[in-house]
Design a binder for these strands. Structure first.
Lengths: 206, 206
DNA sequence: AAATAAATTAATCATTTGATTAAATAATTT
DNA sequence: AAATTATTTAATCAAATGATTAATTTATTT
């Protein structure tokens, strides 16, 4: 009612459209496209179901918007680093691992969401990743080749991403085994330094 | 019509129940529970839709049977090796990587299927993995601790599984980048020897 | 062979679910 | 303020979908 409140409200609250998109992100990410109900999303957003279609036309269109954002988020950590001419290979390793682990501790089910939706709908989504040539000719790959010409550079990329992302992909299985959220987080923090070290080791040892 | 044909048919063909289970495995694995239609499964199996419910009562019961089999298949590669008192740590590394890669080249979407269904339904499924204590006290973990007491043994487990499983989880993204199925398979065959070597390196280098 | 049980099918049901409509309310423009 | 446009809601629709039923065919038992 007061000016204060008005301003606070304007800053804190999201528009209806944003609320729906936020809710859709939560529900789609948790349940996947097929298991998500538009009614779940409407409820999560605290809006009437019809509004979802008013703003986004259909479940599929809403999903595509959410998915595009998630793909950007997941690959946005990687792509800029890969083509940075100004950093060494070692710096790139540290950046990629550090950036990913920091981001994924906040959004742990991002990788499994993106990858499992790509699997269940390869035509639509895999095409959106025009990484192809882009990655193969990246600075990062060239740096790897220069360091170890005897082993295909993709091996090291797989190792880096596997060691970094897999613990999040398998989190529902690993976390209880490790002994809860705090231990899990601690282990992941340790890996920010450990993984780049291990990759360097692989690159240097004959 | 001939005796020959009869015998061949009896040996090659599956019972209706088995056909449905096979088809359910294919459809559920490709699409996930939510995106799979019981009609898809019936069609894949070449049977009438009603037969699915005649044999399995419901989509959910059928899914649980398929999922239990898949969980067994995915963890069956790991668990027996982990508790083998008769093999060295190094032998275990080779067995786990070799067994997994061989199996996953035939069933590449097994890990993402199991892990993404666990994510979208943690209560039901995560409980089925009573690995907890079992894994933490396994021979494998003890051998890791004995070799490197300064680093939590789960780090090495994550590395082993991450490097081995992640390339399959991300296959839809990686395979096109690598340059098709043949190249992908070749890289994976190389990793059977490379991964155990890298893990040994991590364990030995100070 | 007759009777009984098991397997299969076509048709249908009931619910869920994505989407729409028409009316009501709120905001903006004239 | 009146008119217009944008937003929101309750009610409803139509299609998809999991499941069932009753009848038919096939296999097994008596």
């Amino acid at each position: 009612m007061t000016g204060m409140a008005k301003i606070a409200k304007a800053e804190l609250d999201l528009t209806t459209e944003e609320k729906i998109k936020e809710a859709a992100g939560i529900v789609f990410t948790k349940k996947g496209y097929g298991n998500a109900r538009t009614r779940d999303i409407a409820e999560e957003a605290g809006i009437n179901l019809a509004l979802l279609n008013y703003y986004f036309r259909s479940k599929e269109k809403l999903f595509n918007i959410v998915m595009a954002e998630r793909i950007d988020k997941l690959f946005g950590v990687l792509v800029p680093v890969l083509n940075d001419e100004s950093t060494t290979l070692e710096e790139k390793l540290e950046q990629i691992t550090g950036n990913y682990i920091t981001m994924l501790l906040e959004h742990p089910d991002l990788p499994i969401f993106v990858l499992s939706e790509i699997r269940s709908n390869p035509e639509q989504l895999a095409s959106r990743l025009q990484a192809r040539q882009q990655l193969a000719e990246s600075v990062f790959i060239k740096q790897l080749k220069a360091k170890r010409s005897d082993i295909h550079p993709f091996h090291f990329l797989m190792n880096l991403l596997g060691m970094t992302l897999f613990p999040f992909i398998a989190k529902p299985v690993l976390e209880p085994i490790i002994g809860g959220e705090d231990n899990y987080r601690m282990i992941m923090e340790q890996r920010k330094k450990l993984i780049p070290g291990w990759i360097k080791m692989m690159l240097e040892t004959a």
